[in-house]
Amino acid sequence: MEYTLYLGSYTKRESKGVHKITLDTTNDKLVDYQLIAEVDSPTYLTFSSDKKTMYTISKEENGAGLTSFNLLDNGEYKKRASTTTEDAAPCYISFDEVRKLLFTASYHGGYVSVYKENEDGTLEQTDRVIHKGSSVHENQKSPHVHYTDYAPNSQILLVCDLGTDEVFSYEVSDEGKLTEISRYTAKAGSGPRHLAFHPNGKTVYLVCELSSEIEILEYHQEDATFTYVDRISTIPETHTSFNSGAAIRVSNDGNFVYYSNRGHNSIAVFEASETTEALTLVDYVPTEGETPRDFNFSPDENYLIVGHQDSDHLTLFKRNQAVGKLTLLEKDVYAPECVCVKF
């Protein structure tokens, strides 16, 4: 079996844009690294369900925003449209395929933007909400929006603001307008970066980048609110130097949660309790690289692939689905400046 893995990256050094690489499960290897779209700073990606259209964060000479691409017969992607309404490149992008809406998070600007893809393929901004506030950490002098994605089976947009320690819930109209309906405040100085839902649709695991913790929350779908349940550290007590949380994934069976640590340079593996409201540490797994900003499961969840922003390579692990443990297979697969890992 072969799976195609798509890699978003910075383009400050060697990367020229979006790449793909093949996971060969017969030989337990990553092979055939290829450039598929030349674009500046595609640090996050999303796709249409058939993979015929790709949407990326991007920068151009006259500004930043997002770019759409059409899939060609040779497997590469050709630019279709772009928008440059943002001063600095966003850090996250998601796609409502039914209503043709795209959502971006601006870390530097502290706002969430909504774009509409028109029938002719052009991209039009429909709304922007600028956050206000700050918090207690030195990196929290202003809002820093870092995540914009839907709650499961809904059109409620959840937005993590690392700068204000808040998670916002927005209702999204068909015209792409946002209305705030609730707001959750995390621990002061924790820095909410991303979140992931348990398959039950109620338990939420919140990445706290600045405190190196996971906040466990209960999500109430009826009013899009959150209730605090618990929190757990993602690094050992013996690690006293710099660390910041990055990505989080939950296995499809809901039994295991994985979290990447930048600084400790590890994947923290946790087992979820039967109630899903408690996590127990299984292992800290070295990623064999510097700054593991993103990682992902293979579609069959038998493998886990880590991208490293600063050591320019991928690490491939075999995953034991029964106990959650990771076994190193490869640690030197060239992939410069990788910060987004998508299947």
Rank of each mutant, 00 (worst) to 15 (best):
S82Q: 14
T227Y: 01
E180D: 05
E218V: 03
S244W: 00
L217N: 05
L217E: 10
K51E: 12
E222T: 14
D300G: 10
T22E: 12
D310R: 14
S154V: 10
D310T: 07
N320P: 04
L157Q: 03
D32A: 14
Y184M: 06
C340K: 05
G201D: 03
S9I: 02
T122N: 13
R231S: 15
T287D: 05
P292I: 08
L281W: 04
F226P: 00
A81G: 02
D294L: 02
C160P: 00
R319Q: 13
P90N: 08
S273E: 04
I36T: 09
G324E: 06
S106G: 15
R293E: 07
F343L: 10
S94I: 08
H239E: 04
E337D: 10
H144N: 09
V282Y: 01
S94V: 06
T185E: 11
T287C: 07
Q221V: 09
N243F: 00
D73N: 13
G254Y: 02
K59I: 07
E117S: 01
K177G: 02
T26Q: 13
Y228R: 08
S41K: 14
G133H: 12
T276K: 14
A196V: 08
A246T: 00
G65R: 06
F95Y: 15
S311F: 03
F256Y: 15
E76M: 10
T185Q: 15
Y184C: 04
A272N: 09
D120I: 07
E271Y: 01
E215G: 02
Y205P: 01
